[in-house]
Structures are given as C-alpha cells and as structure tokens.
Simulated scan of single mutants.
Amino acid sequence: MTPTAVPANNAGSTEQSDFLKSLVRTVPDFPKPGILFYDITTVLKDRKGFAALIDGLASHYINEDVDMVLGIEARGFIFGPALAYRLNAGFAPVRKPKKLPAEVIKVSYDLEYGSDSLEIHKDAVAPGQKVLIVDDLLATGGTMEATIKLVKQLGGEIAGLGFAVELDFLKGRARFPEYDVFSLLHYAE
C-alpha cells in the first residue's frame, strides 16, 4: 500500500508547536553542567505527539519528490523511517564509525570538545537522488554539515534539512543558507 499525502492541517501552527513543546522534557545540566537538554523521547512516547511530529515534518516536504530520507544517529533513526514512509521514499542511516556492515564513505568534523566522524554506505544514495536529511536537533550544525558532505560525495541532491527542535540562539541555521531548513519547534534560549 502506498502512503497517502499528508494534509497541511496544523503543520507548523502555533497550536501544534505549543502542543509539542508541552511534551518536550527539559533536563538541566545534561550532558554537562550549564547545558539545558531538550529531550524529545517524551514526544515520541505520546501517540498524538509522535503523529504530530511526523505529520508536521511530512507536510513540509510532501511536494518535494524526496527519493531518500537520511536519519542521523541516533534520534534521526526513530522518526526518519516513519517520515520516509509518509513521503514514499527510501531510508538510510548515517552512523558513527564501524557500525555499518558494508563498504562506507566517511567524513570527519570538529566539535566544541574535539572531533568525530560519520559514515554512510556507499550505495545509500544514487547520483541525482533528492535527499531529505533529518535529525532531532539543530544546534551548531556540525553534524548536519558533515552529513551534507556525505550526500554530496555520493552525488545526491539535498531536498531539505528537517529537525524536530532548533536552538535558535546557537545559529546553526546560518550554516545552511542554500538549503530549505525546517524545524517544528524553536527555542530562543
């Protein structure tokens, strides 16, 4: 059965945003002192919250003819496949090193506290495919920037960058002026 198109309903509305924000748990001093962590697991465990998250993201991208949805480890794995299903697209994971079984390409990137790297299967994206990259949170944008490099190495075209939560005060969006960046929830601080 082919998934049906997602109606625009309340996607991105203040009502939807308020509802989803009411489900987000904030955890002070995680993963280190001074950080306020926005935990979406409480959204995911709520059936209406999870549906609103998927519907909100899907309604933004439903007319983009997305071929592949890439989910970034780890929370992008949770809603990426559901979103791919709603968009009638394939799904592929972007993982930390040595987690994928077949031949991969790899990119390293810098973090505030060091460096890390991500990998994707060499056959995950075909040249010319339109790719939507999703993750739970847009902070500084380093992880997303690394994932974009992987997609470009494989010859894919970026259809958009989707997030459940965006921390506006970290200005991660500014790294991606050439892409459609869409976030359901915005936090000013």
Rank of each mutant, 00 (worst) to 15 (best):
G142L: 01
G142Q: 10
G142Y: 08
G142R: 06
G142V: 01
T143F: 06
M144T: 12
M144N: 04
M144W: 12
E145Y: 02
E145S: 15
A146R: 07
A146K: 01
A146T: 13
T147V: 12
T147L: 09
T147P: 11
I148Q: 14
I148T: 07
I148A: 08
K149C: 07
K149P: 08
L150N: 05
L150P: 12
L150K: 04
L150D: 06
V151W: 12
K152L: 03
Q153I: 06
L154Y: 00
L154P: 00
G155S: 14
G155W: 02
G155F: 02
G155Y: 03
G156L: 06
G156P: 11
G156W: 04
E157Y: 02
E157P: 09
I158H: 05
I158K: 11
A159E: 07
A159R: 03
A159S: 12
A159W: 03
G160D: 04
G160M: 13
G160S: 08
L161Q: 04
L161P: 07
G162F: 08
G162R: 00
F163R: 00
F163C: 05
F163L: 05
F163T: 08
A164P: 06
A164E: 06
A164S: 15
A164Q: 13
A164N: 09
E166H: 05
E166P: 15
E166T: 11
E166Q: 09
E166I: 13
E166G: 08
L167T: 04
D168C: 07
L170D: 09
L170P: 12
L170T: 08
L170G: 05
K171P: 00
K171G: 00
K171F: 06
K171I: 00
K171W: 03
G172K: 03
G172H: 09
G172F: 01
R173G: 08
A174M: 13
A174H: 09
R175D: 06
R175W: 04
R175T: 01
F176Y: 12
P177I: 00
E178R: 10
E178V: 05
Y179S: 01
Y179P: 02
Y179D: 12
D180E: 12
V181P: 13
V181Y: 10
F182Y: 14
F182T: 00
S183V: 09
S183G: 13
S183K: 02
